[in-house]
Computed example of a mutant assay.
Amino acid sequence: MKITLMGLEFFINNLGCEALAYSFVSELYDIAKKRGESLDISTIVFADRGTPHIPETDIPIRCIGIHYKSLPFWKEIIKEFKACDYIFDFTMGDSFSDIYGIKRFVLDALVKTVAIKSGTPYILGPQTYGPYNRSLVKKWARWIMKKASFIYTRDGQSKKLAAELTGRDIFLTTDVAFALPYEHKVMEKTDKVRVGFNPSGLLWSGGYTRNNQFGLTLDYRKYCQNILEKLCYNDKYEVYLIPHVGTNSKFEDDCENDSAVCRLLHDRFTNTKIVDEIMTPMDAKGYIAAMDVFIGARMHATIGAFSSGVATIPVSYSRKFEGLFGSLQYDYVIHALQDSTEDAVKKTIQYVEEFLVLKSKIETSMEIVNDKQKLFRDSLIKDVFQ
């Protein structure tokens, strides 16, 4: 079985995107193994710095680097698309939208169009659809979705939007990264409540435009500082700063860099501890799993916490958070597009204090996750790989 992947990265220094890639390839490996088939994977990536290794597998994965201005790149992917059996496209989980800018959408949509024109079955993997704020973007997105062989989504809001745009049946599952494997990090015993805090470099910078690109109603920097002030000066808590993007970055001024923000916050709140031994999404999840509570604005960092049973407080800057966690009947989300800084801080501290209630709720929600993951796996076997 020869498969080409799109919108999944292994070396991009964004552990959320990498978590999607490792999780889905592991799923494909399990399916191929049960069917007694070999698996050959190519992936079209921005970062082609090596050969990915998926734990406990021997899958050969070839990375094709994206070079939009290179004619040989376009010739190579046309050849690749025509030669494979299936094309799976995840669009980084949340980038099938124009919230990150029109240029990013258009360039990605061009590759999607080439994939569709190849005639090979093109499958949209579980992801967020929209919002589409421009008429051109909405029309192009509608065309892409109508041409897809199958459309999977990870939340109810996206299902509704995709169905309205296309008139098609949309398969609702959940984020594949809930199944990311990991090893729980062993830490020293303590009587204190361990709180993991994941500051987003992107929100700290004001987005790619550095001018509150996402329209937050709270002051994100002030929110982070106020949360740490309340936690760090309370002997009940032990606070760990955990980056999820930029963990291997050498560029301090990169607007995506969580690690740089962790260092800035640590300089001010010196009794915090920085987790800086993270190389892969599995490493990150292992450390996050050792927390009692986790506060994060990187969605896949919160998915790592949630799926390992840690009381999770997602900080939402996009409806992808409300869509995903709402579909799991989990309401302990900070709404950065609605809440004031004061209200967000107050709710966060309240949730931290009630973390055992959150943990109990997550146990129930994970039953929903497990059911949705099984439905997705069954659909791949019965519908796609029939």
Rank of each mutant, 00 (worst) to 15 (best):
G101N: 06
G101C: 04
G101P: 05
I102L: 15
I102Y: 15
K103M: 12
R104N: 15
R104V: 12
R104W: 10
V106R: 09
V106F: 08
D108M: 14
D108R: 14
L110Q: 11
K112M: 10
T113W: 11
I116N: 01
I116C: 02
K117C: 14
K117P: 12
S118Q: 07
S118V: 07
T120Y: 05
P121L: 01
Y122Q: 08
L124P: 07
G125M: 08
G125V: 04
Y129C: 14
G130F: 04
G130D: 05
G130S: 07
P131I: 00
P131H: 00
P131R: 00
Y132H: 05
Y132N: 05
Y132C: 03
N133E: 11
S135L: 14
S135M: 13
L136E: 15
L136P: 06
K138G: 07
K139C: 11
K139N: 15
A141I: 03
A141Q: 04
W143P: 06
I144T: 14
I144W: 06
I144A: 14
M145D: 08
M145Y: 09
M145T: 09
K146Y: 01
K146C: 11
K146H: 06
K147P: 07
A148D: 06
A148V: 04
S149C: 11
F150E: 10
T153M: 01
T153F: 00
R154G: 01
R154L: 00
D155P: 03
D155K: 02
G156M: 10
S158K: 08
S158V: 07
S158D: 07
K159D: 05
